[in-house]
Computed example of a mutant assay.
Amino acid sequence: MKEPESSFRVLVAWIAPVTCIYGLDYLTNGYECDPYVTNFLNKYNVHIMPVHNPDGYYYSWHSDRLWRKNRNRNPNDTCYGVDLGQNYDEGLDLGRYYDDGHGTEDSCSKNYEGPTGFSELETQAVRDYINELQSTRNLTAFFTIHSYLQPWLYAYGWSGESVPEEPEVSRVAQIGVNATESVHNTQYRVGSFYNLVRK
């Protein structure tokens, strides 16, 4: 029987990579010391990708603190970068088909979605890696960590439809929120990306 897999991916915001690295440190140092960590890692293989936009992340540290795009030069343009969070194709719940102004075709905008879904090497790499995990390693969960707002979001992002498993997804998300809130009493909202962010 294949081991279940979990995957974590983050975008450029400064705290998100640090959060993933903290989680990695917690899991590796807690194994065989903390029974919860040991039990979790004995059940699941965890894949953590702390940064999937290294050039944009570097640029945000050295040139523009609020930079969120990669640093690719846009063809036939003087502007740089694509917002990788907008560069996924419809159906991955990170979708590029926004009607509310989040994604834009203006290449100079901080929210530029790129010429097509998966036009960027970074989003292609994440897509291919996740597809590989889905087809060969029994992927059971995929999380993205962002540092803006305080929602605990799940699918869908491109549509107001409910996912077929919404009661279970919502139940599990609420468990995560309750655990997170218990540490610092920080309040989070739970719901679909579409209903909490897009509306």
Score class of each variant (00 low, 15 high):
47 H>V: 09
16 A>K: 01
44 Y>V: 00
13 A>C: 11
28 T>S: 04
29 N>M: 03
36 Y>S: 14
16 A>C: 09
54 P>D: 02
25 D>W: 12
50 P>M: 10
55 D>Y: 00
12 V>W: 03
21 I>Q: 09
32 E>Y: 11
52 H>P: 05
36 Y>R: 14
9 R>H: 09
24 L>E: 14
55 D>A: 00
24 L>R: 15
28 T>W: 14
56 G>M: 01
52 H>I: 13
37 V>C: 13
32 E>I: 02
32 E>N: 11
17 P>N: 08
20 C>S: 14
28 T>H: 07
12 V>I: 12
42 N>G: 00
37 V>E: 11
33 C>H: 14
19 T>F: 08
18 V>H: 11
46 V>P: 06
41 L>W: 08
14 W>C: 03
49 M>C: 02
43 K>T: 13
49 M>F: 04
45 N>H: 12
55 D>T: 02
36 Y>P: 10
34 D>F: 07
11 L>A: 15
24 L>I: 07
31 Y>Q: 06
27 L>F: 11
48 I>V: 09
55 D>N: 04
52 H>C: 07
49 M>A: 12
36 Y>W: 13
23 G>K: 08
35 P>W: 09
49 M>E: 12
14 W>R: 11
12 V>D: 05
50 P>H: 03
45 N>E: 08
10 V>A: 08
52 H>A: 12
32 E>V: 04
17 P>K: 05
22 Y>L: 10
35 P>Y: 12
50 P>Q: 02
38 T>W: 10
41 L>E: 09
51 V>A: 13
47 H>P: 00
43 K>N: 12
11 L>P: 10
14 W>N: 12
37 V>G: 06
38 T>P: 10
